[in-house]
């Protein structure tokens, strides 16, 4: 599960997050919306331990970021703006490298199963350098769930995917949530976010300014909150 309380962060003295509170239960799928610069990516980077909060408490999968960041990293899967794949290595070599870092055993079996799951089995021995953006993104998802994390953090994972690949990713993410993982998805695609998530949140002016069950809100209604959160 994800438990974030009073998280603050800023860049060059300019506050970006001003006390974010956020909870995601095990098996829950939450979509996080917000205008550009609202702090969505910063929040995800803090949860993934790539940035340090100035203030506040972050607990993921039962591990406190301030107390045991290394244990926390073991239970988090992260897909950010970069696929984090080595271009000169093949798909299977990339996954095997990350399997070594995460201590995944048996690596070969797990990597092959994931390549099958994301539809890249035929390209397993091809170098990532020659992959399309969509193929790289699918491999990035496989990398993120390689160690069966309890928490999955996704920052606009649909970008660069065609309709088929995006639908495939949707099914994969819902299966991950159904398997008991806490999923936090940052997206600009309001309709997709509502369709996928159990709950939606809007981040604005450095705080969570709106939260509701995804089933109880329409894309149009959410757009109104979106605009309000942006201050426009």
């Amino acid at each position: 599960m994800i438990d974030v309380r009073g998280v603050e962060h800023g860049y060059a003295g300019k506050p970006v997050l001003r006390g974010v509170d956020l909870q995601v239960a095990a098996g829950e799928f939450v979509a996080l919306f917000g205008a550009n610069g609202a702090g969505k990516t910063t929040l995800l980077r803090i949860l993934a331990t790539l940035a340090r909060p100035v203030r506040g408490r972050v607990v993921l999968g039962g591990f406190d970021l301030a107390v045991d960041p290394q244990a926390l990293r073991a239970v988090v899967g992260f897909v950010g703006h970069h696929p984090l794949l080595y271009p000169e290595l093949t798909a299977i070599e990339n996954l095997q490298f990350y399997a070594s870092l995460y201590g995944v055993e048996p690596a070969r079996v797990r990597c092959d199963a994931l390549l099958e799951q994301v539809g890249l089995m035929r390209q397993r021995a091809e170098r990532v350098r020659y992959f399309s953006r969509g193929m790289q993104q699918r491999l990035a998802i496989a990398r993120a769930i390689l160690h069966s994390p309890r928490v999955l953090l996704l920052d606009e994972p649909h970008s660069g995917l065609d309709q088929n690949a995006a639908a495939q990713l949707d099914a994969l993410l819902q299966a991950e949530a159904a398997a008991g993982r806490s999923v936090l998805l940052v997206t600009h695609d309001v309709q997709r976010g509502i369709a996928l998530a159990d709950r939606v949140l809007v981040l604005g002016r450095g705080r969570v300014v709106y939260a509701c069950a995804a089933a109880s809100v329409s894309a149009t209604e959410l757009a109104v909150h979106f605009a309000g959160a942006d201050g426009t």
């Binding site: 331990t49 790539l50 290394q70 990293r73 988090v76 992260f78 703006h81 970069h82 984090l84 080595y86």
Partner: peptide
């Protein structure tokens, strides 16, 4: 160049 250091920093390694 490819922000690959983030992949290393995300991993639960010393």
């Amino acid at each position: 160049e490819h922000a690959l250091h983030e992949g290393l920093l995300l991993a639960p390694v010393e």
